[in-house]
Nucleic acid binder design. Structure first.
Lengths: 358, 358
DNA sequence: TTGAAAGCGCTAACAG
DNA sequence: CTGTTAGCGCTTTCAA
């Protein structure tokens, strides 16, 4: 087989065959030198290593992955690349302008990155856009040994399909499917505590809720909010529809509130991103936070601490979320864990100035 | 060959063979449906797609990569994971505490990420720590079609070896090797302008330089500094050795300066990171910036804008650096570019308050 | 301790 | 438009 392996002219990428030939051993020995060094005599190993280096041998991960049945990589799937493709062209802005950085997903990703590095996994972000008929999530799933996905990033069907092949952790979701591990933060409790603060300490009664109910974590936040309201004997207001990824929705809601003539006492937002957008929109209209109206957020992203006033919010342990996901997957891949894992991480109420506290 | 493909009990990952069988076609047809849909009759394609979905077929990127000779992924290599492994255990701190985020490399990475996504490349971060005899950089090189590396992250030898197999862009370095594409920012000019400002506007004469000369970009910064000093007829001070990645080095230098009894008028630091560390160290000693001593940085990271006072610094177009790297590699992989590419991006002097300006 | 040989799952000629 | 058939480069029993 290794006959016509090299054409006389073009220098092809050297393979195990080339290294083996140069070192005067078999390809199996070359392979062992790199994967099971203890099984090879030291002197032989040295020859092989020398040959490999002088030839500029770079082992093919594809070949290894195919033969071994695993790649050594973990994937992180954030959202469907196609859906926000145009958003990308609309906002190619520099860091700091327009888009605040880092956002929730960035901080989680950071945790994933750090933990992957610590444990020796390669990290695969996103998939290639080469297979029109295949969802992106499937493409990335085909490249890795395990996958981490944000809640709502993958359609249920895709999630099921991927989870039936490789371990999957869904971040910030609720337990939804057998075989899908989850990490979720105590959204309900956090929002409950925050709302209670607004009602009990500040005595607010006219409260608006800006957010969405698209994924379990958002539902839980609203749930915590509702419970606090009900416990205080107050009616639960409708959710004013706002999407964290799109400030325009927040701006629109604020505009509607302003136009209505009477502002609520406080706007409870289900993310820091929309809270910050709301503060900006209010300020632009000459309304001061928290003097004229209080605003609260959720997440505890960097920008919430740096804004003026700092946001009263609920802090999620974002880096830990990312780290925990990798840890779970590492356990499972190592065979040290079999059952479904569902990890609950605590959240922390953070008092800023935006609620009206000094 | 596809005889004993499925053992009766354990449900194995379905392959093209399984899909082909279920759809009543050949494996080539299955392959075409996903890679060259136009070559397959619509009705056939539908059957195949249906079969694939019901079986939960997830194509193996390893197999595809091996057969095609390319993976569709681009790698980003930041530094040797082994070297900073313990640093990682020392500072597992949360975002915002102690270690700042995002740093220079994070912002560049963001650009790489965005551009990879836009162009449909998968992004591979780091390599697996599984091959004791192989440098990490080699492992990641084996996984991708092209590699982006930070200057100084890879030993020259490794760089050469990798570059002989796949296109490589080195970020923030100088042109060093044939076949290694580079992107560099005008470090010299930026630092020259900043230093000139200190000398001409503020009239400083007693100037210290904190930094290193480890990679070309740092050398260029010092070069710009030196030129400005010489042009003003001032002696060029020695470099006080400080490493951006290790605040302890900065703290030590500041301590030495404080102990010496007389502080310079200004500390010119070759990164924002060390400048921020210096400001902190000075503050801890009761020295106020810029009243008692001025401090300047380089990079323009987010933290430099948020610090009090904001840092006078030189801003690098970090996101653009990352994007450009991907663009170059995309061109080369598409065969639209053959020669070595060396791109020079501009830097911008940024006036903060830390130099003594109001 | 090392070698021979059979795949891993997919792609891409080349036929038909 | 679809099927046949070689490999892609590496790992891994099984023998020697």
């Amino acid at each position: 087989m290794p006959e016509n392996r090299r054409s006389a002219d073009a220098p092809r990428k050297p393979t195990v065959y080339d290294v083996a030939q140069a070192a005067g051993v078999s390809i199996a020995t070359v392979s062992f030198v790199f994967s099971k060094p203890e099984r090879v005599k030291a002197s032989t190993a040295e020859q092989v290593l020398a040959a490999a280096e002088s030839l500029g041998y770079v082992p093919s991960a594809s070949a290894r992955g195919l033969a071994r049945g695993r790649t050594g990589a973990i994937g992180l799937y954030a959202f469907d690349y196609l859906l926000d493709a145009d958003e990308l062209d609309v906002v190619p802005g520099t860091v700091g302008e327009g888009r605040l950085f880092p956002l929730y997903a960035d901080e989680v990703q950071r945790g994933v990155q750090l933990e992957c590095r610590r444990r020796g996994f390669a990290l695969m972000l996103g998939g290639a856009r080469t297979t029109p008929h295949l969802p992106h999530a499937i493409d990335v799933a085909g490249r890795v040994d395990a996958l981490i996905a944000f809640a709502g990033a993958m359609p249920d069907k895709t999630l099921t399909q991927v989870a039936s092949r490789i371990p999957v952790v869904e971040l910030g979701g609720a337990v939804r499917q057998e075989g899908v591990h989850t990490i979720f933060v105590d959204n309900r409790e956090g929002m409950l505590e925050l709302t209670r603060h607004l009602l009990e300490v500040h005595g607010y009664r006219d409260v608006a809720y800006l957010g969405e109910l698209g994924t379990p974590e958002f539902v839980q936040r609203f749930d915590g909010f509702s419970s606090a309201m009900q416990a205080a004997g107050l009616p639960v207001p409708e959710v004013l529809p706002v999407h964290a990824g799109d400030d325009a929705t927040t701006i629109a809601v604020v505009a509607r509130l302003l136009a209505s003539g009477s502002l609520p006492e406080v706007l409870v937002c289900d993310t820091d991103q929309s809270a910050l957008a709301a503060v900006d929109a209010l300020r632009a209209a000459g309304v001061t936070v928290p003097r004229d109206v209080a605003v609260t957020g959720f997440d505890g992203i960097l920008a919430s601490r740096l804004s003026a006033p700092p946001l009263t919010t609920v802090r999620q342990p974002m880096e830990l979320v990312g780290r925990s996901a990798v840890q779970i997957l590492a356990d499972i891949l190592a065979g040290e864990s079999d059952a479904d894992r569902h990890e609950l991480l605590g959240s922390a109420f953070v008092l800023g100035g935006s609620c009206g506290c000094s």
